[in-house]
Simulated assay, not measured.
Amino acid sequence: MGIIGSGIAGLHLAYALRNEFDITVIERHTSEQIRKGRIMSTQVHFGSTRSREERFNMPKWEEQSLIESIHITIGNQKLFAGMLQEPASSVDQRLFYAHSMKVLAEKGVSFRREKEDNESAKA
């Protein structure tokens, strides 16, 4: 089974299906390139994502302070503040992706380095 891209959805899918299928993830970067690359985002993993990662036996991320509320402020004006139903965590996606890819490879998931472009996708 092939998965195109190792974004969060691709990684979750690979973890979810790895015990039932031979998985190949097609990704244009190696885990090392991702780890050493530019900051993609500091994505927040809310409760549903954290639960899915636990259900799929994804590696536990470093212990950190959990996010329990959200505050939106522009300039000096607070626009919104609210408590989350479940704690969330903030993750540097470079480190999270690279680590998850490495663990998946150790568990038998294949990674094929290839860049998909619009022209070959149309063929």
Rank of each mutant, 00 (worst) to 15 (best):
M1F: 09
M1L: 10
G2P: 00
I3K: 08
I8N: 07
G10L: 09
G10M: 08
L11I: 15
H12Q: 13
L13R: 07
L13W: 03
Y15S: 02
A16N: 14
A16V: 06
R18M: 15
N19S: 14
E20Q: 15
E20M: 11
D22C: 04
I23W: 04
I23E: 12
V25H: 00
V25N: 03
I26S: 00
I26Y: 14
R28A: 01
R28G: 00
H29M: 06
T30C: 07
T30A: 10
S31H: 10
E32N: 06
E32R: 11
I34N: 03
I34D: 05
K36R: 10
K36I: 03
K36M: 11
K36T: 12
G37D: 05
R38M: 03
R38P: 03
I39N: 05
S41H: 03
T42W: 03
Q43F: 05
F46I: 10
G47E: 09
G47C: 08
G47N: 04
G47M: 08
G47I: 05
S48M: 06
S48L: 08
T49N: 04
S51D: 14
R52C: 09
R52V: 13
E53N: 13
E54A: 13
R55W: 06
M58I: 02
P59R: 09
W61F: 09
E62S: 07
E63S: 15
Q64K: 12
Q64Y: 00
S65T: 10
S65C: 02
L66N: 12
S69A: 14
I72E: 11
I72F: 13
N76Y: 05
Q77K: 14
Q77W: 06
Q77A: 09
Q77C: 08
Q77H: 12
Q77S: 11
K78F: 00
L79R: 12
G82A: 14
M83Y: 10
M83F: 08
L84S: 06
P87D: 11
P87M: 05
S89H: 06
S90H: 02
V91Q: 15
V91H: 14
D92Q: 11
D92V: 11
D92G: 00
Q93E: 07
F96P: 00
Y97E: 06
Y97Q: 11
H99V: 00
H99N: 06
H99I: 00
S100L: 00
M101T: 01
L104E: 08
L104Y: 05
K107Y: 01
G108F: 10
S110G: 01
F111L: 03
R112M: 11
E114N: 08
E114K: 10
D117A: 06
N118W: 04
S120V: 05
A123W: 00
